[in-house]
Amino acid sequence: MSAVTENTTPVKPLAQRINWVKLAPWLYTIGLFVAWELLVIALQTPPTILPAPSRVFQAIVQYWSPIWKNSLQTLYTTTVGFAIAVVAGLAIGLFIGWSKAIYAGLYPLMIGFNAIPKVALVPILVIWFGIGAVPAILTAFLISFFPIVVNVATGLATIEPETEDVLRALGAKKLDIMLKVGIPRSMPYFFGSLKVAITLAFVGSVVSETVASNYGLGNMMSSAQSQFNVPLVFAGLLMLAVEGIAMYALMAWIEMRMTGWAHRSTMSQ
């Protein structure tokens, strides 16, 4: 690097022309895999304990057909559960944020409900709906709708009192204030919560698939595990990570598109 600092010619050296910030996520990811590979080589861990990433990628290629099908199944249950959570979360959030009395009454119930581990609900869902996609969808829904509710309700509950006074003095009804101020105002909170909710939805669907389904990545990993096919288990984990990142990025993109005004510092630069 000392050569770089001494270089005074107008053509910038390669190291300065590269956008390191943009490249960083890829470099760090590659770095992680390289470190993992080296660790496995150094410790000589058997593939049944910790397979090297090269072995995991090999498993992805080898079992591509089941991995692909199960990935789509998990993506399907997650997205459906998440979609229900978005609709229900938005509706309940608006309902709770509507009045202080409803907020006060329902909030403790919501906290208590959220404190219940959703894994514990899977057996009940199985009793009601049998094994398969339905419990997975419902678990994804149950685990992911809470952050949406809380965020929408918070957005509504934190309207500036001055704004409310200005509008009420003009004769605005509660509905007017909600439509003109409350709901637009809670949208950044809502879209922000989607990023949290989608990640949780994956947790819910995979947990349910692991316990009570014949399809999906959760089921695939649990049967691979029972056959000591550890590379395939890791292949499933990798696919989940990829799906999770993709859906998160989609939510972040939607958030930017819908509520760009709330990210004004980044927009004005």
Binding site: E162, D165, A169, P184, R185, M187, T259
Partner: peptide, 14 residues
């Protein structure tokens, strides 16, 4: 029939 203005302009950012 009143208009109100406070110290905080409370313009809606969207």
């Amino acid at each position: 029939i009143v208009g109100m203005a406070f110290q905080n302009p409370t313009m809606l950012p969207w």
